[in-house]
């Protein structure tokens, strides 16, 4: 059985995308902490170290900006390993630029704390145009069946 939750948010970069959530209540720098060829987080000690961003909806506090953020995301897009969408608590201006250039939807200001309601592995449909995030989760089997 699939549970579905709909949350309202604010579009930073418009568009629509879907994918499995990758969640960490942390910041991430694309410059230095993400390998644009493998699409994996390489930052030592980062909570997402070793995880692939490819096709995922990245749910993090914010990205940490560097002039090279758009370049890393552009290379990742060309290699086909960029995230599908961003859900951020705070908006970093260089990540917003990277999302605009690479046409990756970005949503912020969800109506509830994303780290409490979204879990890694949930399937998310991000409709930034409508300002809506749909969370689809396979419900845990319960005693009542």
């Amino acid at each position: 059985m699939i549970e579905t939750v709909r949350l309202r948010g604010r579009a930073v970069v418009r568009g629509r995308a879907e994918g499995y959530a990758l969640v960490a209540d942390a910041t991430l720098s694309f410059w230095g902490e993400v390998d644009p060829v493998s699409g994996r987080v390489i930052g030592k000690g980062h909570p997402l170290e070793g995880q692939s961003l490819a096709g995922r909806v990245l749910v993090i506090r914010s990205t940490r900006g560097s002039s090279a953020t758009p370049m890393v995301l552009h290379l990742a897009s060309l290699e086909g390993v960029a995230p599908a969408a961003f859900i951020n608590v705070e908006v970093d201006s260089l990540a917003a630029l990277a999302a605009v250039v690479n046409r990756i939807p970005m949503v912020t200001d969800l109506e509830c704390n994303p780290f409490e309601v979204i879990r890694t592995g949930d399937y998310l449909i991000v409709d930034a145009d409508a300002g809506v995030v749909e969370i689809h989760r396979v419900a845990q089997a319960s005693g009542g069946g």
Binding site: P36, V37, S67, M71, L75, L78
Partner: peptide, 15 residues
Amino acid sequence: LLCVPNLVARGASPR
């Protein structure tokens, strides 16, 4: 910035 990636994109496809 007008730079080619050099080793930043180590292993990337020629395309």
